[in-house]
Design a protein around this nucleic acid. Structure first.
Length: 275
DNA sequence: AGGTTCGCCTGCGGGC
DNA sequence: TGCCCGCAGGCGAACC
């Protein structure tokens, strides 16, 4: 479940190892990830060119290379590794990007195969997967007024709204729950009824929790270029996610979970009232 | 058209 | 020990 902090940590981890190296080959062991990997096109258009950097948009990683960009998504179980070139691939190691003639490998592992490797040409923001994405939560375009404006007249539950990539990118189940706790807002609130003050509190809480998680990943996970599907070292800082049945650290009320849109939503009934 | 549910996948933990 | 079940979840598709 790499969410934005995990993807950002991975980006920082692999960028120094990948940037400036030539993509000299592509080894595909299976191509049926979320979408078929366009192997022929990648070989024709990307192989032979240097990878110029590692960018992130939401939970997508973008690797500019020759006339386009590799787009990587880790789904919920994907991870990236930089194995020794002679290390045999494991069962779920679906592909290798071969760099600098085999001196280095960037290996994608993804047991559940919800991830993706695609090839983008043209403006990345015009690609269907990226075109409708909302602002980066840690960018200037994300603030309480933005949320307030998008929520006007809508009746979705607050937590679902926050996890909608068209509203803001990168906030998955864990950080949505944590941000709502920090803002003192119940996950089932109808978004059209929140006021400006509540939206500003929530925007600030989203930024705080993501910033703290990235900082935690950046220190504890410095050499970590993988994601094993767990919340990583930020787990110890989680206040409601994964803590159902335990006492809230702030007020002592037992943490509960409700289902919103088929998804478990942990919250503290004491701290997160409906008003 | 906004809102909800489904489906893709595998590993894992719990119950028996 | 082994099997079945439910759950985890990003996100596009399908549905109401």
């Amino acid at each position: 479940m790499p969410e934005l902090p995990e993807v950002e940590t991975i980006r920082r981890g692999i960028a120094p190892q990948v940037s400036g190296r030539v993509l000299s080959d592509l080894i595909l062991r299976r191509t049926d990830l979320r979408w078929p990997i366009p192997g022929e096109q990648l070989r024709r258009e990307a192989v032979g060119h240097p990878i110029r950097g590692v960018e992130r948009r939401g939970k997508y990683l973008l690797l500019p290379c020759g006339p386009g960009r590799l787009l990587l998504h880790l789904g919920m179980s994907g991870s990236l590794h930089l194995p020794e070139p002679d290390l045999p691939p494991g069962k779920h190691d679906h592909l290798d990007l071969v760099l600098d003639g085999g001196q280095r490998l960037l290996r994608l592992r993804d047991p559940r195969r919800f991830g993706a490797l695609l090839w983008l040409t043209g403006a990345p923001e015009a690609h269907p997967l990226l075109a409708r994405l909302g602002p980066e939560p840690l960018g200037e375009a994300f603030h309480g007024d933005h949320l307030h404006r998008l929520a006007r007249g809508r009746r979705v539950a607050l937590k679902n709204f926050l996890m909608d990539g068209r509203v803001v990118v990168g906030v998955g189940n864990i950080y949505a729950a944590e941000a709502l706790f920090r803002a003192g807002l119940h996950p089932a609130l109808v978004v059209g009824r929140l006021d400006a003050g509540q939206w500003h509190r929530l925007a600030a809480a989203v930024q705080e929790v993501l910033t703290a998680a990235i900082a935690s990943g950046g220190t504890s996970l410095r050499d970590y270029v993988k994601s094993d599907g767990k919340p990583g070292y930020f787990k110890q800082a989680l206040r409601v996610y994964g803590r159902v049945g335990q006492a809230c650290g702030r007020c002592g009320t037992v943490i509960e979970s409700l289902r919103l849109g088929q998804r478990a939503s942990c919250f503290c009934p004491g701290c997160q009232g409906r008003g």
